[in-house]
């Protein structure tokens, strides 16, 4: 992954920075637009990232509202239900996403989860388009399996920035180091047992059966997001937070 200098909105990506392609097609990620025939412009300020293997390029913007895109995992809150769908909030003050009442693992008319307003679900974005409502689902529609999705019971939700949620979901590289530079979940997980669901919409759900431990995890994540701790600082904060618990 190559990083270049910061671009301002409306600037053209220099042709020399475009990744090489075999098929002659490029994949444009977030915050880029294509003006035919061959101009690629930025739509916000950020740093350009390219993936030569996939011939993809995108702009990483530091802040901003979550925009749903197909395949994203989100933590959604049920707002209200209607005859065959639930209306769920992904981000505040935006139109509700639709979740089918039968879009759960093994659900049929008799055995479907009864969700109240305020309940949480971990879901995947099924369709996202600027012209119609966003649809989400809690199972893999090709296999019918839940794949870890479904209603979230107990626990607490913490708000983080969408960019930090992306870092949390980056996973680890071959040597087991976190690609996103966040070690909170792994390091706390060695001492305390807890479940976690990270939503790309800037929400993270934590449950450890005990309120104190849940709060420690949530507040460490929020602190790491707001204060931008490095890996060393994260380890130090984890140490100070966990000491009184043992």
């Amino acid at each position: 992954m190559a990083t270049t200098s910061v671009l301002l909105p409306g600037e053209q990506i220099p042709p020399s920075d475009l990744p090489p392609t075999k098929k002659g097609t490029l994949t444009l990620g977030p915050n880029l637009r294509h003006l035919p025939p061959s101009t690629i412009l930025t739509t916000t300020s950020g740093s350009l990232h390219t993936d030569p293997k996939k011939a993809a390029l995108w702009i990483d913007a530091p802040h901003g509202r979550y925009q749903p895109s197909v395949g994203d995992l989100v933590v959604a809150q049920i707002h209200h239900g209607s005859t065959d769908t639930y209306h769920c909030a992904l981000t505040p003050h935006t139109a509700y996403a639709l979740l089918g009442q039968l879009a759960f693992e093994g659900a049929n008319k008799k055995t479907r989860p009864k969700l109240e307003s305020g309940d949480l679900v971990y879901a995947r974005v099924k369709t996202a388009s600027k012209w119609e409502d966003v649809e989400i689902e809690c199972f893999n529609s090709s296999t019918g399996k839940a794949d870890g999705l479904g209603p979230l019971k107990g626990g607490m939700v913490f708000n983080i920035s969408p960019a930090f949620a992306r870092r949390l979901m980056m996973g680890t590289d071959k040597e087991g180091r976190s690609k996103g530079g966040v070690v909170v979940l792994e390091e706390v997980g060695e001492k305390v047992k807890f479940e976690v669901a990270v939503g790309r919409n800037g929400r993270v759900w934590v449950d450890s059966g005990n309120v104190a431990a849940t709060l420690v995890v949530g507040r460490l994540l929020m602190g790491c997001d707001e204060k931008g701790w490095s890996v060393e600082e994260q380890r130090r904060e984890i140490e100070t937070c966990l000491r009184p618990m043992f």
């Binding site: 910061v6 301002l8 300020s45 740093s47 530091p62 976190s178 530079g181 490095s230 890996v231």
Partner: peptide
């Protein structure tokens, strides 16, 4: 000044890439 101010914000947000 505008390029510097916007660039600084982007670099602050991407600082974890260098240290991580």
């Amino acid at each position: 000044w505008l390029r510097q101010a916007l660039g600084e914000s982007v670099r602050d947000a991407g600082a974890w890439r260098e240290t991580g």
